[in-house]
Simulated scan of single mutants.
Amino acid sequence: MEQQGFDTIALDRASGECVLTLIDHLPWDAQHLYDLQQRINLCLRTIESGELFLSHPDAADGEFAIVLRCIHEPDTEARAFLEQAREMLDEAGYRLRFGPLGSAYADTSA
């Protein structure tokens, strides 16, 4: 099976939403943004090729969300990238959400 791009998958039975979660531990820089774009594209290919449904057939009838859980708070450039990606995915019928891996980003003062 081809690499899928996501770290976990969950199906919200109440809403029917299939959630692909990406765990992100890297500090933000240009290479990181490029790698993240590749991971998001892998998620989309996994959905659109139907490969996802081989292991998760219940996901076939629902909506999809890609959720990015970050250790480091996105900087200005990363936020701009994520907002642009969110808009593009929204237009394609998918959702993109992002936030801290835990209760707060590791580099945010409490």
Rank of each mutant, 00 (worst) to 15 (best):
D58G: 01
E91F: 10
E48I: 00
A78R: 10
E87S: 11
R79G: 00
L44C: 08
I47R: 03
V67S: 13
T46Y: 02
M88E: 13
L68D: 00
A14R: 13
F64P: 00
S109L: 15
R95A: 13
L22K: 06
Q38R: 15
D61P: 00
L36V: 11
L42I: 04
R97V: 12
Q3G: 04
F64T: 00
H32Q: 09
T46V: 04
L11A: 06
G93I: 13
Q38N: 12
V19E: 14
Q37L: 12
E83P: 00
G5K: 13
F64W: 00
L82W: 02
R45V: 01
Y94Q: 10
R86V: 00
A30N: 11
G16H: 03
I9M: 11
C18Y: 03
A60V: 11
A110N: 08
R86C: 06
I66A: 04
C18P: 03
I66W: 01
A10E: 11
A59N: 02
R39V: 04
A104Y: 14
L52Y: 01
D12F: 07
A78D: 06
Q3L: 13
F6Y: 14
V19A: 05
C70K: 02
T8C: 09
T108G: 02
H72E: 03
L22Y: 03
Y94E: 08
A10F: 12
F6G: 06
E2C: 07
I71S: 07
H72F: 15
L54T: 05
L36Q: 11
S109G: 03
E73Y: 04
G62V: 00
P74R: 07
G62Y: 03
D35E: 08
D107W: 06
D107N: 15
L33M: 15
L54A: 10
A92M: 12
D35W: 02
R13A: 14
M88N: 09
S15N: 03
L42Q: 13
A10Y: 13
C18A: 15
C70E: 02
E48H: 06
F6W: 09
L52P: 04
D90Q: 13
E51G: 00
A85Y: 00
L20H: 02
E51K: 05
T46R: 05
A110T: 12
A60Q: 14
E17K: 15
I47G: 06
R45T: 06
E2Y: 02
H25M: 14
G16Q: 01
A80C: 04
A80N: 11
P74S: 09
E17M: 13
R13I: 08
A60L: 14
E51M: 03
Y94T: 07
Q3I: 08
N41L: 06
T108K: 15
T108C: 10
G5S: 06
L36C: 07
A30M: 10
A85F: 01
D7A: 14
D61I: 00
E2N: 05
A106T: 11
L33D: 05
A78M: 05
L44T: 04
F81K: 02
L101E: 10
P57R: 09
Q37F: 08
D107R: 10
A30D: 10
E73N: 07
L42H: 04
M88P: 01
S55M: 04
C18K: 07
R79A: 06
A78K: 07
R45K: 10
R45P: 00
C43H: 11
Q31N: 10
A106N: 04
L89V: 12
H25Q: 15
L68E: 01
E91V: 09
L20V: 07
P27N: 10
R79C: 12
H32V: 09
D61W: 00
C18Q: 05
G99V: 04
